[in-house]
Design a protein around this nucleic acid. Structure first.
Length: 279
DNA sequence: ATGGCGAGCGAAGCTCGA
């Protein structure tokens, strides 16, 4: 089974490219971020004509997450427990949740498509929101894994954190002044590793960015950032046989500023749509 | 000094992203 994550930067502006890529790369499951639309605005037909079911969570033109899958999806969640909300100018609990998380179960594997808040600036309320969001997500993940210690689980998406210096190639991000590289953000990301998740792509693809800003020739100069990750539980990591960062998807007409990241899973027993029977 | 790009909304110029 091939599973991928992609911040598509508006699915309505990108449905052709995304579906073409799914078919061409024989992807079974795609976690999307920044669909930038409500479910009723999602270009369903293009996906269904290609053989994919879609579940989408979007409230307005901002954020929005979704899954497209060739396999049945169950247990759809549109937020994680204790997910923080945000409202401009407001503080405290019970703020409205943004459309930044969707969870599904596919073939016994628990998958999340996550769009971590950007943070904007170190002194912006969005920065505290980002750190809180990551801390709450990690608490929930830890709790879930305690209840399901042997379950395959993956947190996939746009984390808006460059965990190491090698993941930051954009010279406009300055240590001490910029988000994505601040010690608290990196600590919040590293905490997921302490919880028992691992970056299942990095061992297979040790180098490469997943995002390049549209501005200032960032892609031709390869001044990008690695901020899109697939973090898997032990049981998930054991299934991974390959991984890729699809850098070419930043090329050509009307690309997203992010590229897809995919992993291949070897499932026990009943896989597989595409593996030849060998006797 | 400072934007460049691209999207949504809505019909100009904001807001947002990273």
């Amino acid at each position: 089974m091939r599973v991928a994550t992609w911040n598509v930067n508006s699915i309505r502006a990108r449905s052709g490219r995304v579906v073409d890529w799914l078919v061409r790369e024989d992807v079974d499951v795609l976690a999307m971020q920044e669909i930038k639309c409500k479910p009723e605005q999602f270009p369903l037909e293009a996906f269904e004509d290609a053989g994919y079911e879609v579940v989408a969570h979007g409230l307005n033109q901002w954020n929005g997450v979704a899954f497209a899958s060739r396999l049945p999806m169950t247990d759809v969640d549109l937020s994680f427990p204790a997910q923080p909300g945000f409202l401009k100018g407001a503080e405290g609990p019970d703020l409205p949740l943004e459309a930044r998380a969707i969870g599904v179960t596919i073939d016994g594997i628990r998958l999340w498509s996550l769009y971590v808040p950007n943070g904007r600036a170190l002194d912006d309320p969005h920065y505290a929101y980002k750190l809180d969001w990551l801390a709450r997500l990690n608490e929930e993940t830890s709790s879930w894994l305690a209840r399901h210690p042997d379950a395959p689980l993956a947190l996939m998406g746009d984390w808006n954190v460059a965990p190491t210096d090698a993941d930051m190639g954009d010279p406009s991000f300055v240590p001490g002044l910029s988000t994505h590289i601040s010690p608290p953000e990196r600590a919040a990301f590293a905490a997921f590793l302490d919880t028992g998740l691992t970056d299942v792509v990095r061992p297979i693809v040790p180098e490469g960015y997943t995002f390049w800003d549209y501005k200032q020739l960032r892609f031709p100069r390869n001044e990008g950032m690695r901020i899109d990750f697939i973090l898997g539980s032990g049981a998930f990591a054991d299934l991974v046989t390959d991984a890729r960062i699809h850098r070419d998807e930043r090329k050509g007409d009307a690309p997203s500023d992010h590229v897809p990241v995919s992993v291949d899973l070897e499932l026990e027993g009943g896989d597989d749509l595409d593996r030849p029977m060998i006797f």
